[in-house]
Nucleic acid binder design. Structure first.
Lengths: 343, 343
DNA sequence: TTGAAAGCGCTAACAA
DNA sequence: TTGTTAGCGCTTTCAA
């Protein structure tokens, strides 16, 4: 296991000083072509590769060309798409990406962020967990740029890229009401998650706007897995006034619903997913674009890294209600002969 | 934008030497409790955080506690699951993960790996692209540990974690043949991808074992997207002797097939996917376990990092043929009254 | 055009 | 228990 060659080794091999090697390695054109050629030969011969760790130490006010990306869970396809998009942008800026999953755990979030900053990342893209993020202010004041994506962070003024969760769900529930439903179930992930909380608020707001009182027997929070969600469907279906329509707060819940739902009950899911159009009936969804979220967040971050000092912005990306069938199943109060979503 | 405090700053604040600060920061117990308390107070007051870049430079033969993870595409749910599992293991070893997508591009693969090693990663987990990987030998000889996952690398002796792609497809095609099919279509991604090539070989081997000649009109390679695959279905269905069964080399192809396939044609897909059981008919798949792949690869890597010098191993993870219905649709040559997969 | 000296922030080895 | 010295591999500054 040979130790990796240093500039000193290359210098000795080429019969020059380390400074000359440094110049050649970094493409400084003052070096004479002959000397450069000798150095390059030595580099190839020894398999020399610049040590960016040492380099960075010296270049104390240079960029590390590394960003930290913390998502809820890399294994979640939605987050994976966000991460992948951010990685693409980073690559175009010549930056590497340190990645980590918070798994919705405050301690893990802090550990990850500490590990990122200890490695001198130029910036952070975060899907913040619930709770205050004041602790990030010190990192921020020392120059680490921060952007939040998918969720907003409390106690921290940073660029944030989200979708209008509230408005999108409000619209979807209104859509169900317009199709004649009044007993509309809500199945959701943990309310503490920022996006989920917003979506629940949207649900309540739409009901209230229609003069419908929310029925606690039709509402379940904290559904974190497919079986959880499937069980919750069974529960709310056996309520004294069972729902004729159901809204799922995200894709995981939707998968559980699809495994347990009678086909005559209307259904809308937040998050589009593969094969939604191939289900029977095809599933009406609120689609968001994770790639656009990740791309936008990364663009904002690199703008900051490159000196943008304008006040923090919140970018709201569009969502789209895609009527495919499951959300257009008429309810008991449906107006006759009206079916404005077809065609 | 204040510059980040160094040990020197903390030392001045606490009225001790930097060495004492170093000891306290690293939990060396020889420091007296009173001194330690003073230093800790200074650390808190200044918001000091150890600079791991500088630390690593000094600890030349220490680990960087960072690994590099290169997959084909982080946004692909399968790869995301592999990556996530590897990240979990890394975290338990106190390591961070640098991530990158090769996007099946040799140049990008090399750039990524160079960027990883320049940052002194302790090891690499790779999903190698097609082509020789001899170039990794120098990194390897300098102590960077390497593990391949999902695909084998040519020209490089390293630990490798794969599934038996060949055997699994052979079994699946045999399954179709046993259900009375002789005209079996093959729709696949790029043959050059190691896994895909193996799967195609398995398809050919199963046909040959049954004395069936492969029909080029029923075979399509290089399908990289859902629309690609859907179009290919239409094409092979209009062959002079159309298929009565189809095998898809992976999930993306399967999604295309599902968008275009008549429900009386038998179908088996490599890769299990969400909602496969909810389709009509439910989809028979060859399931692999990406989490197990990623976990196993990471375990191998950290064993190497911690000194395991045994000869490189190839670990073959199990796959599972899950009969759900689509793969059990009888063909024209089906034996009467036999349906051994039900129940 | 090239090189020598100094130092980035940290820690190993030794000294007090 | 605490501090001093030296140096990790590199680049900046200044001199030759």
């Amino acid at each position: 296991m040979a130790t990796r060659p240093t500039m000193k080794d290359v210098a000795a091999e080429a019969g020059v000083s380390v400074m000359t090697v440094s110049r050649v390695v970094n493409g400084d054109s003052v070096v004479s072509p002959e000397t450069a050629a000798r150095v390059e030969a030595a580099v190839r011969k020894l398999g020399y590769q610049r040590d960016d760790v040492a380099r960075q130490l010296r270049l104390t006010d240079q960029l590390s060309k590394t960003i930290g990306l913390m998502v809820d869970h890399v294994g979640d396809p939605f987050m994976a798409a966000v991460a992948s998009a951010a990685e693409d942008v980073a690559r175009r800026h010549g930056s590497m990406v340190l990645i980590g999953s918070s798994r919705d755990d405050q301690r893990r979030e802090r550990e990850l962020i500490a590990a990122f900053t200890a490695r001198r990342v130029d910036g952070l893209i975060l899907t913040p967990v619930a709770g205050s993020h004041r602790f990030l202010r010190s990192a921020q004041s020392r120059g680490t740029k921060i952007v939040c994506v998918d969720r907003a962070a409390r106690g921290l003024e940073v660029d944030t890229v989200v979708v209008d969760n509230f408005g999108a769900v409000q619209e979807a529930v209104h859509h169900l009401i317009a199709h004649g439903h009044r007993n509309i179930g809500y199945l959701g992930d943990k309310q503490e998650i920022w996006t989920v909380g917003e979506r629940y608020r949207g649900y309540l707001a739409a009901l209230e706007a229609a003069g419908i009182e929310a029925d606690p027997a039709l509402i379940r929070h904290g559904l974190r897995s497919v079986p959880d969600a499937a069980k919750a469907v069974a529960e709310i279906l056996s309520a004294s006034t069972p729902p004729t329509a159901i809204l799922a707060s995200n894709d995981v819940v939707a998968f559980g619903v699809l495994a347990a739902l009678p086909s005559d009950i209307a259904f809308v899911s937040f998050d589009d997913f593969t094969l939604a159009a191939q289900m029977t009936p095809p599933v009406t969804v609120i689609a968001q674009d994770p790639v656009a979220l990740g791309t936008s967040a990364a663009h904002l971050l690199f703008a900051r890294i490159h000196g943008d000092t304008s006040p923090p912005r919140t970018v709201v990306m569009p969502t789209r209600l895609i009527p495919r069938g499951s959300g257009e199943i008429p309810g008991p109060h449906a107006p006759q002969g009206v079916d404005k979503d077809r065609g």
